[in-house]
Amino acid sequence: MNLIAAIAAKEQSCLKKTKLKHSNSMAANRLAPHLRCYSVGDQDWVAATSEDEARRVLAEMNGDDPAEYADWDVELTSDKTLDMQWTDEDPPHAQCGCLRDWLKEATEPTYQMGTE
């Protein structure tokens, strides 16, 4: 095989790998749930697909029966709150991120942040 043919074969191989990676990425995105950030109760934020799921995620994280959370208030988080920078409660109180960034990173329903 001459040099030009070898380069062409290598380019074809790279192109196939790139297409496969892109295809797998698109499939993963289609399978991932549409997560939104919910405020649950007065002080917790959860990535979930529904209000009921947000209650369940919080209940399971706390080791409680989800039925105990059935009447808890759940609301979609406002854009202002999604973009609010959180800071570490311990000195030097460094910024640790925002709910919007954590929501983008979430791949499944999960607890995101809370205050006491």
Rank of each mutant, 00 (worst) to 15 (best):
W72N: 10
E116R: 08
A70D: 03
L20A: 07
E51I: 04
A59Q: 09
A47I: 01
M84P: 01
M113R: 13
T49F: 03
S25H: 06
D71S: 12
T18C: 07
P66H: 06
S78T: 15
G41S: 05
E75N: 13
D88N: 14
T87R: 15
P109H: 08
N24D: 11
Q12N: 08
R55M: 00
R55A: 00
K21H: 02
T18W: 03
A48D: 00
Q95A: 14
K10E: 11
E11V: 12
C96M: 11
R100H: 08
K80M: 09
E108V: 05
V74P: 00
R36N: 13
D65W: 08
E51S: 11
E53D: 02
E75P: 07
N62Q: 10
R100W: 00
D65M: 07
K16G: 01
A59V: 06
E116I: 13
A27G: 04
K19I: 10
M26A: 15
W72S: 15
K10Q: 05
G114D: 08
T81E: 12
T115C: 12
T81Q: 11
P92L: 07
W86S: 10
T49C: 04
R55K: 13
V40A: 03
D44R: 03
V40P: 00
A9L: 12
E51W: 01
C96D: 09
T87P: 06
K21E: 06
A9F: 02
P91W: 09
W102G: 02
Y38R: 03
V74M: 10
A54S: 02
H34A: 09
D71R: 03
P66K: 01
T110R: 10
L103S: 02
W86I: 09
L35H: 06
Q85P: 04
E75Y: 05
D90I: 10
W86H: 12
D79C: 10
L15C: 00
I4V: 13
S78P: 07
G41L: 02
V40N: 05
A54M: 02
Q112I: 15
V74G: 02
V74Q: 08
V40F: 06
L82A: 08
C96Q: 10
S50I: 04
S50C: 07
K16V: 11
T49P: 00
K17H: 05
Q95D: 13
L35F: 02
G63Q: 11
T81F: 06
P92I: 10
E53G: 00
L15A: 14
Y38L: 04
